[in-house]
Design a protein around this nucleic acid. Sequence first.
DNA 1: CGGCATCCTCTTTGATACTG
DNA 2: CAGTATCAAAGAGGATGCCG
Lengths: 137, 137
Amino acid sequence: MKETTQTQPGPLRVSASHRELLDQVLDKWSLLVMEELCDRPSRFNELRSAIPAVTAKSLSATLRRLERNGMVERIVGDRRPVSVTYRITPLGKTMREPVEALLAWTTTHLPAVEAARTAYDERADGGGHAVQSRPPD
Amino acid sequence: MKETTQTQPGPLRVSASHRELLDQVLDKWSLLVMEELCDRPSRFNELRSAIPAVTAKSLSATLRRLERNGMVERIVGDRRPVSVTYRITPLGKTMREPVEALLAWTTTHLPAVEAARTAYDERADGGGHAVQSRPPD
DNA sequence: CGGCATCCTCTTTGATACTG
DNA sequence: CAGTATCAAAGAGGATGCCG
């Protein structure tokens, strides 16, 4: 394990601006889209194919939001039936590292989380609360 | 063509399980609650005071979800008017690093994002799309 | 092909009130 | 104090249809 990073001093301040930005950038479809665009630029319908569960409306909204936040770039070709390509921006690329760290965390700890879920569900299922007494303060 | 030939950086796989876990742990109130509990254990109404915008219902739901996922621990004191304390678990602490990395990212890049937003809004306001021709493919 | 507009539903959230 | 129950409001998201 590498614990070279700061662990105990962190303020972990979650301001409204931070929250809003995370909401816009980590929402349901954004991560999938960013994942695709990190690999290569894609056109609208390529993205739809790559992410079958997304509807045109949601994809469109996601792309516009990401574009507005400077994460992706919308490139319109001058062909006839219009061809639009989306590409990740340099700013968008900077997001990759922290997001990957987060994803790595989920990969590492998902088993522990699932164990906790099972334990919790069994506890709730069995009857009352199995809690130990521990006087606070 | 290259399929999933990810190069140097990590895979960035966003599976359904990852997505679900992130949704449970990064949602609207969870980060605020975790932030509080990282500092010190707190009781229910302490958390309500610390996070004025949250309702009892939402806080309750958030805490139960975090508890189910093994991120926080619910400790019931044996006093008369019941005192319940919430404390972060070791598993919960492991989340702090990647979350802080993400928060640091927002802090670093929020100015760039806001600039992008302004530029986008002005572009949209001015009229149609200011698009440059760039033939894809 | 790449969208946006409309309608409609389903989920989430908040306000309020009540309980152990 | 620490919640739960209920209702109302809001919003995300899907389905469909049209347009450049």
